[in-house]
Design a protein around this nucleic acid. Structure first.
Lengths: 222, 222
DNA sequence: TTTTAATTTATTGTATACAATAAAAAACGC
DNA sequence: GCGTTTTTTATTGTATACAATAAATTAAAA
């Protein structure tokens, strides 16, 4: 794994906690490479908004406020719902087929859910992401895709902490089907609104968890 | 000027034309710095979508197709119109005042327009940009702002080639006033739609120019 | 004591040399 | 001559040493 993904991953799984201070030298030591590739990685992570410079004394892992999360999810809703609408207009038959396959895989992953099984949760997350990506491919809009990919990183952090319960997952699966059907029927407005609602659901699930630390779930637990 | 802005500027003003090949060494030589800061700049420019790697033999300045331009402007419309709506909800009295001032400066810059005067054109462009930025400050949404700032770079290239005629500029000024009034009256939907229309106008002006190279204007001419 | 100045230190910024490698050119076999 | 292998070359990737500088610490002055 390259330094960028290694560090990003450490942030996402919570190994580097919010507020943790990072320096080029320490990262270079820890990943056994020189400072040069670490600097490249740091620049990218900074542009992703995952770390911020800390008064010329390294960087700190960004601590996201509730308002940050709200704003990022709203942006996601804006961009992904737009993408779903475009996909409904531009999808080919083949792309539609791929979407169905990805969503079947998602359904499969959910049905394999076992309590507190981290690997299963990762599978669900992965399958979900692949379904969404299949939609954005069908837009044929690389510019839109690159913006979406940026706005999707931060939610990953929070999803890996507070994961969904089965009821939420099944609801999510239903919405996927609604989106798919709208894309199949070439109904952009319907696809757009369904996607918007889908993202807002995810947002609110995360916000509820953040606002009630009492019932916060430990890492990976369901 | 730092290497990033120097290179970006050279691309925007057309000194580095689309398709031109750039290598780290040549840029380092030309800007009289070492390869290290050039590499930083290149990484950023690549993430901006202004240059793309050219089979491990340097980079080339991206050539934007009509479809690229359409997609980028549509994205801009999506993000900036959302921003205008948010600004209508969240603006303070002071921020509204600033917007008025920036738009007055814009009006002033237009009234000073002289035929083929490049410095005046730069002033107009600058004043226009500052008006838009004032709106996005008022959203208090840093995440939205960072996305908008990214999607605004490419249009700069095309605006500096095909600049508007006076009729277009005056129409643009009128729309600014409509947006301002909607933000003043806290009408998010109105602000959003006016902004959307504003961006689409800009898009179509550029697309018309691109589709009719016969009447293409030379650099900076009005 | 508290403020100000001087010194030290931690850390990023920059230059530069060398390594890795993909692309281009040249040599080779048929 | 045409496809294949080998060699050369252009260019980025990486390591490392040194420079610049902001922050922290210490010393001095008031």
């Amino acid at each position: 794994m390259n330094p960028y993904n290694a560090i990003k991953n450490a942030i996402i799984i919570g190994e580097y906690e919010p507020g943790k201070r990072l320096t080029e030298e320490a990262l270079a030591e820890s990943l056994q490479v020189s400072r040069t590739p670490i600097r490249d990685a740091i620049k990218q992570l900074e542009s992703d908004g995952l770390i911020i410079p800390f008064k010329r004394r390294g960087y700190i892992v960004k601590e996201f406020s509730i308002e940050d999360i709200r704003q990022i999810y709203n942006l996601r809703a804006l961009l992904e719902s737009h993408g779903a609408g475009e996909a409904a207009l531009n999808r080919t038959k083949e792309e539609l087929q791929f979407m169905h396959e990805k969503n079947t895989a998602y359904e499969q992953a959910i049905s394999e859910l076992k309590r507190s099984d981290i690997s299963t949760i990762k599978n669900i997350q992965q399958a979900n992401q692949e379904f969404h990506e299949e939609i954005f491919k069908a837009t044929k809009n690389e510019h839109l895709r690159s913006h979406i990919s940026k706005v999707v990183v931060v939610p990953l952090i929070f999803r890996s902490f507070y994961w969904y319960n089965e009821r939420q997952l099944l609801r999510s699966l239903e919405v996927h089907k609604t989106i798919l059907k709208a894309i199949e029927n070439r109904e952009p407005e319907r696809a757009k609104i369904a996607m918007q609602e889908h993202i807002y659901q995810g947002r609110d699930d995360v916000l509820v968890q953040m606002a009630n630390p009492k019932i916060e779930l430990s890492k990976g637990e369901v």
